[in-house]
Amino acid sequence: MLRAVETGAAVVVCSTCRLSSEQREDGEGRRGGALLAQALRAVQAGDSAYAGVEVQDMPCLFACQRHCTVHLRAPGKVGYVLGDFTPDEAAARAILDYAVRHAASEEGVVRYADWPQGVKGHFIVRTPPEGFICT
């Protein structure tokens, strides 16, 4: 059930997420999560600023009440689950911009003033790193 991946800063995309709250997949049968993963990889490939963040995907993050969900994580840092994105370049860029700031932060906490507009309102859960709780 588990597959080893690179450790380090990562955006884990739910590859089976719905396209939207109303629609499971697009007209070609593609799920929103798969499209979001594709958009993230395309944006990452076009900009070396995102090289330090891995884009990983897995089926189902169990956030099924939401759509186009991702988990931002890095060793020793607070992690976040975000959702309700449109699987396009703008969302991918906002997610990666936040992921870069998250990776550069000491504990995974990015000042609200530094959040890209495209991630505001998309946070669902924050998760403490192993061995810690948030204060």
Rank of each mutant, 00 (worst) to 15 (best):
S20R: 10
S20Y: 09
S20E: 07
S20G: 08
R24F: 09
G27Q: 13
R30H: 14
G32K: 03
G33V: 13
A34F: 15
L35E: 04
L35C: 05
L36R: 05
L36H: 04
L36W: 09
A37W: 08
Q38F: 12
A39M: 12
R41D: 12
A42M: 07
Q44I: 01
D47F: 11
D47P: 11
A49G: 09
Y50V: 06
A51Y: 06
A51D: 12
G52N: 11
G52Q: 13
G52E: 12
G52S: 15
V53G: 01
V53I: 15
V53E: 06
E54G: 12
V55R: 07
V55C: 09
D57P: 04
D57R: 11
M58L: 13
M58T: 15
P59F: 02
C60G: 00
F62L: 09
A63V: 06
C64W: 07
Q65R: 09
Q65F: 11
R66M: 10
C68A: 09
T69K: 11
T69I: 10
V70H: 08
H71T: 01
H71L: 11
A74C: 13
A74S: 15
A74Y: 08
G76L: 00
K77P: 03
K77R: 14
K77Q: 11
V78Y: 01
G79A: 08
G79H: 01
L82V: 01
L82H: 00
F85G: 02
F85R: 01
F85D: 01
T86D: 08
T86G: 01
P87M: 08
E89A: 09
E89S: 10
A90P: 10
A92Q: 03
R93L: 09
R93Q: 13
A94L: 05
I95A: 06
L96V: 05
L96S: 04
D97L: 03
Y98V: 01
A99H: 08
A99W: 03
A99Q: 04
R101P: 10
R101N: 00
H102V: 08
H102D: 06
A103G: 12
A104Q: 14
A104W: 08
E107W: 06
